[in-house]
């Protein structure tokens, strides 16, 4: 792509160290890969990894600083919070919650969005119009505020959180899949399937579905970072994962009150969110590069 499009502005080879490093990370996502596999492993094996219970308070140890402080203790490597709970253990269990919420939401939204997107694109007409206007509505609603109303009406719960996130995430899947299907349905093999008398659902399943999987993967990898961020944000605002379950967002929110005396309570979970979301974004870039080189030029 670069070669044919840049006659005017002359393709420049990246030469600086930074540019090379960036290219390298795009080609081999070492750091994101490391962070994400750590997240998955820690999330799955949380009970074996965490040195303490994430919810067991021990008031004698409240706001113990991290181990490298003089007053710190090796018992709490990243310190203890305002209730004397081990920050590291809460982080570890928080990874589990993050993983659980993100994967459930992505799978639910992906399946829903993919199905509706394929129907909209393939059937067209009134079905298309209804589904796509539905997507428009969802993408124009302010999620944060709607979530607050739901929470005040039904109370905080993890099911509500997952449901809300899924409902607000399927729109992008549907949009992209529909676009892809509009192209696929003009293919000869789809027409042949129709001519052969295959039922609509069969054609969609057998001939359209395989064509949209890479699109769905790309959208899912992009959406994952956003879902984790939104989950953390809602938990921070007290509208996400209900306490005492350790979620990174709510940990930041609790630690905020002790900022001047115990910075580590709020700092580490936020750092974890940052690293995971950033890794997911880099990873998404990589996935897109692998699956859809057409987009490479536009970063």
């Amino acid at each position: 792509m670069e070669g044919c499009a840049t006659l005017g502005s002359a393709a420049r080879r990246p030469t600086s160290v930074l540019a090379r490093w960036y290219r390298f990370t795009l080609r081999w996502p070492v750091f994101p890969g490391f962070v994400l596999s750590l997240l998955v492993l820690v999330g799955i094996f949380a009970p074996w990894i965490a040195p303490h219970s994430p919810t067991q308070a021990s008031l004698l140890d409240r706001i113990t600083p991290p181990a490298w402080y003089a007053e710190g203790s090796s018992k709490y490597i990243l310190g203890a919070d305002h209730q004397g709970r081990d920050v590291l253990s809460r982080l570890v269990y928080g990874a589990r919650i993050t993983l659980l919420v993100a994967s459930t939401v992505i799978v639910a939204a992906g399946v829903l969005g993919m199905t509706l997107g394929m129907l909209a694109g393939y059937i067209g007409g009134i079905v298309d119009e209804l589904i796509m206007r539905g997507v428009d509505v969802i993408l124009t609603l302010p999620l944060l505020l709607v979530a607050l109303v739901f929470v005040i009406a039904f109370g905080q719960s993890i099911f509500l959180l997952v449901g809300l996130l899924a409902v607000f995430s399927w729109g992008n899947f549907a949009r992209q899949v529909r676009g892809e299907v509009l192209q696929l349905r003009t293919m000869d093999y789809v027409a042949l399937s129709k001519v052969a008398g295959a039922p609509t659902m069969w054609t969609i399943y057998k001939h359209i579905l395989p064509g949209v999987t890479s699109t769905v993967t790309i959208v899912a990898s992009v959406a994952a970072g956003g879902v984790i961020m939104t989950e953390a944000t809602l938990s921070f605002l007290g509208a996400g994962v209900p306490p005492p379950t350790p979620s990174w967002g709510s940990m930041v929110s609790e630690g905020r009150l002790y900022l001047t005396s115990a910075w580590w309570i709020a700092f580490f979970p936020g750092l974890a969110i940052f690293l995971v979301v950033m890794s997911l974004f880099f990873f998404a870039d990589w996935v897109r590069d692998r699956l859809d080189p057409r987009l490479r030029q536009l970063m």
Partner: peptide, 25 residues
């Protein structure tokens, strides 16, 4: 394709993955 571009691109990804509430804190 120059260093400036790559710095900008990295800033983009970092900026989009910083949790606002945490950044504030």
């Amino acid at each position: 394709g120059t260093t400036i571009d790559y710095i900008a691109r990295m800033l983009v990804t970092c900026g989009q993955s910083l949790p606002q509430f945490w950044l504030g804190i």
